[in-house]
Amino acid sequence: MYGKGIIKGLGVTLKRFADTYLDDIQWWGRRYYKAEGIAHRSSKDTRGVFTVQYPEEKLPVPEEFRYVPFLVYDDGTDGGKEVRCTSCGICAKVCPPQCIWIVRSNDPQTGRPIPEPTEFFIDADICMNCGFCAEYCPFDAIIMDHDYEIASYQRNVFNMQQLLKPASYYKSIRPLNYQRNDEERRAKEAAKAAKAGAAS
């Protein structure tokens, strides 16, 4: 029979239309602007079609969501920032579009390089959010961010002040990654201490 496909297709549309309202009634008053409603709508059990009321409610992003990277710093003992970056330059080398620029620092007395960047630039207008820098960083110093609301009125070239974010922020956006990295770091430090102890 001709036209069967059309009727079938329209039936699918009609079903979704009906489902939307059925789900709305079932979740009356809880579906929009509420955390549990958003969680339900992001799950596989949701039915029908709906609009994300963006500025008021935001879809939760998955942990591995990647946006423009940021630099991690640990809180120092004297309240200062202990930047994890050692300006080794691996991220700048692996970056496919080459959007990372690091200014290395030297000891003013001896003139020898010290493991700390003086400046760190990421050109967000080139960055393609591939995450290679975070993947290759041996110190977990550069991490992909979750904050996507960074539109601005001028070109987005971020310097170190804008890029530095605390380790607690890293923990809040990527708890599983943070835990894994933290364990690895501890294990490495313990192994190093044991080796030093054995040598002496």
């Binding site: 963006y54 946006y67 423009v68 207008d125 960055c127 996507y148 960074i150 539109a151 987005n156």
Partner: peptide, 10 residues
């Protein structure tokens, strides 16, 4: 200017 590759709808 909206950075991102590509920027999400949000």
């Amino acid at each position: 200017y909206i950075p991102g590759c590509p920027p999400t709808p949000q």
